[in-house]
Design a binder for these strands. Structure first.
Lengths: 135, 135
DNA sequence: CATAAATTTGTAATCATTACAAATATAAAT
DNA sequence: ATTTATATTTGTAATGATTACAAATTTATG
């Protein structure tokens, strides 16, 4: 995918920082925190400011090409995938997995007459890798 | 329900503050923030400290009689209902509704071999009340 | 009572996020 | 090109929720 193009399509001027931040989000798919994005890019962009990362992510969210994942109380994570999907966080290794779910099945009958804009499904536990390795 | 009893059953000594905090959680069912709990109880317990509210909620969570609701990025809410259920937050009036969902349907087939400890379902949008009133 | 243990409290520290204004870069106009 | 305006980035300071910690208070125990 052409990232500059993608940003332009969504009414975002493709500056160097914006391209790099989106590229990181999109290619790593690791649901990073602001801090992780910053630490991974500051080598390549030495003048990068954490404020820019915050500003840029807020812009991405406003324009609808990024969403937040609040699976933990104390940190906000970011995701470039915009299709409805859930997240599983392994409490052992910390990895976050994308999971599909059937949107229709999630409480939709209870929300008759409600206007649903956004659904988040968060599951926590231990991933199969950690379960087989450790135990 | 006898709250002191309930706390004792879960290995929590039923102090005055703990009883009052649990009582607030359980009776109001309003998914309050720490600040809201504090503001509502400090009239009745003038010496109450916000630290006590934090400590107490952490204890409740450890002992399994309270859970957190992180439907917003910037605030943690608390809930005394421990059955698996989801939450709908109205972006217009701010109210939080409990919603039931079918646990089996939520991505369970994708998590074969995973150990699931906790599931949270968050839905945002506008409630029927706000939709009929406003529009 | 006296002593020990648990609980509560207040203050200070921490950490993520936001506000804001200066600096820099980009685009438009002359 | 050069100036002028606009947008973007940056750094610092402010905010606000949460945690750390030690003193004060309360409750339980000998």
């Amino acid at each position: 995918m052409n990232i500059a193009q993608h940003l332009s399509t969504h009414d975002i001027k493709p500056s160097y920082q914006r391209i790099k931040i989106y590229e990181y989000l999109y290619e790593k798919m690791n649901h990073p925190t602001v801090d992780l994005i910053y630490k991974n890019l500051v080598g390549e962009i030495p003048t990068l400011s954490k404020t820019t990362v915050y500003n840029t992510l807020k812009l991405f969210i406003d324009k609808g090409i990024t969403s937040t994942v609040t699976i933990e109380d104390n940190e906000v994570r970011y995701d470039a995938i915009m299709d409805a999907h859930g997240h599983f966080k392994c409490t052992a290794c910390g990895a976050i997995y994308d999971i599909k779910y059937d949107f229709k099945d999630v409480a939709m009958n209870e929300l008759k007459g409600f206007e649903v804009k956004e659904t988040q499904v968060h599951v926590k536990g231990k991933c199969n890798q950690c379960l087989t390795n450790k135990n």
